[in-house]
Design a protein around this nucleic acid. Structure first.
Lengths: 315, 315
DNA sequence: CCAGCCCGTGAGCATATGTTCAAAAGACAC
DNA sequence: GTGTCTTTTGAACATATGCTCACGGGCTGG
């Protein structure tokens, strides 16, 4: 009659689970009702959970976001992942994303010990920085991962580092040099300059890197914003570029391409696989292959995105 | 922006609920994740429950039984109610019922202070008694609610009192007198006999009364078992009888009928509404109207039945 | 601009829950 | 039966949860 015992044990487990979760009794009460010790009642409730006799259903848009985040975290071994509900009003709307990124920055800035935050460029990062509420944390350091001088000599308006430093009083290290140099040789000489090497040294010690992800297609932000010419873009696409992080173009496997603009790029090169907390903020159908590749290639170990994008990445 | 706050609060509640119930984190961990105090995390989890953002589903036959029992308890203000799964192998099978009744008896017998248990007759009660495991409790008392001599002078085999007393060593009070007397007058004289009056006195102090419910139709057990003749049965039906407890016939409203065999019945009359714990064990489609009437008329304040019957009673 | 109200907060405590461990109860082979 | 092995149990402790209360920040209506 082992089956019977087994069965009646599960029955009791179900009863206990019902009384606990649905009727809302304490385990003490349940113990009395079922004529067992409290410890046994606890075991029954555990068993009910372990045997999956009881399931939880969360009736809220957030639920699927949480589930997607957990899946992404699992699948790509991320240290951090957040998925926000897709705003039906603004499908590309990164409002939620920006909010979460800002929150992440604030959390990091709230740390007792001095921290170093490295920032990429792009609308997502910019929006995040804009939402950080001012706090006086002069002991922290903010460092740029990307040169912010355009090909035409003008400064990019994505001065994320300056903005964040404004809000915190932190020491900051912009990269006052062109995004792209004319030749590989020029780039190599430039990054060896003492001032630039120092910035790199700080960036290498960053506790948190927050970056955007750009897709490499005809509408690549990098080109639209004037960082690269159409020809340069086309060449990178020919070399297999599918996305870029801080300007570093990579292919569908998330491997950084050796060639094209990457050879003339002054940005701090990504660490592969990412060791420091390296979080990308990216949303939108166009960016999906780029995000997936970045995750696959371990260029990042954290992601903040929206539900629709998360779903597509996992699909 | 009140709506926004409201919404984001619910979002957080949903997040907290997800992390708590689905991901299985502690509220402390959740507090850290959501950047709030532990107390607030607790409030969010509560809110999630209060707003019914999360629902529990118990995938087990027991679940519906528990729900039905709770409904019956609520609807008829019962002090005790148990619903066991209907055994598909034996639809009339009272195995589960007997088990539960036996358990109830054992629990009662386990009491520190001396208790008085009153028993009715019928298969359900008999089966329950058979399943009680022997314990030595001589300080308790077992008393019969029903005379067990049939019209033909033979003893009913439903000697529940004797059986239970055997198993417990308790003092017991059978009712060694005919179930029905010839006339009302004879009955009145009989129940005034000192020996019988004493039994009644004990029964009136009973802590637990366990009884069966009989339907009053052509297949009434009371008739089948030879307690009443076909004519007597027919008369009671004409008077509106729909069920009986310890022989006392009652109508569809659960009101004990004044007339017919009830006037010649020696059984201890029911207390209406039931004050002592008065629990009926009854199963089966045929008994449904009788059970419902007994519940409605407060002839009983406890019920042990099966799922199918419970569902029908509530329908 | 200010006082007053009110909601939300966190500290601290009472309760409830989860876990460990030694002992009892069965199960099984002999 | 009898001894051994495994399983289950309850006591005791360590954590986690729920609740109360006094406080503070923000909104509202002068």
């Amino acid at each position: 009659m082992a089956g019977d015992n087994e069965k009646s044990r599960l029955d009791d487990a179900a009863r206990a689970g019902w009384l606990y979760f649905i009727a809302g009794h304490t385990q003490d009460e349940i113990a009395r009702m079922l004529q067992v010790s409290r410890a046994s009642a606890q075991r029954l409730v555990s068993l009910c959970l372990a045997e999956r006799l009881i399931t939880f259903r969360l009736e809220h848009p957030i639920a699927s976001c949480m589930a997607l985040a957990a899946q992404l975290k699992e699948r790509f071994a991320l240290v951090h992942c957040e998925v926000v509900p897709t705003d039906p009003a603004a499908p590309t709307g990164s409002a939620g994303i920006a909010e979460r990124c800002a929150n992440l920055l604030e959390t990091t800035l709230r740390a007792e010990t001095p921290v170093i935050i490295a920032l990429g460029t792009g609308r997502a990062v910019r929006a995040a920085v804009e939402r950080v509420s001012p706090v006086d944390r002069p002991e922290h350091q903010i460092v740029s991962l990307v040169g912010n001088i355009l090909a035409d000599g003008s400064a990019s308006f994505f001065d994320t580092v300056g903005r964040l430093a404004d809000r915190t009083g932190a020491r900051h290290y912009p990269m006052p040099l062109p995004f792209l140099m004319g030749t590989e040789d020029e780039r190599d000489r430039m990054v060896r300059l003492d001032a630039i090497a120092k910035v790199k040294a700080v960036a290498d010690k960053a506790d948190l890197k927050l970056v955007g992800i750009g897709q490499m297609d005809q509408k690549a932000q990098m080109h639209v914003d004037g960082f690269v010419t159409r020809d340069e873009l086309t060449e990178m696409m020919r070399l297999g570029a599918i996305g870029e992080i801080t300007g570093w173009a990579y292919d569908a496997k998330g491997i950084v391409i050796d060639g094209g603009t990457n050879r003339r790029l002054t940005s701090i090169p990504p660490e592969v696989p990412a060791r420091a907390m390296t979080i990308a903020a990216a949303v939108g159908p166009a960016k999906i292959p780029a995000i997936r590749a970045a995750l696959t290639g371990r260029l990042i170990n954290g992601l903040i995105t929206d539900e629709a994008t998360a779903r597509a990445i996992l699909a």
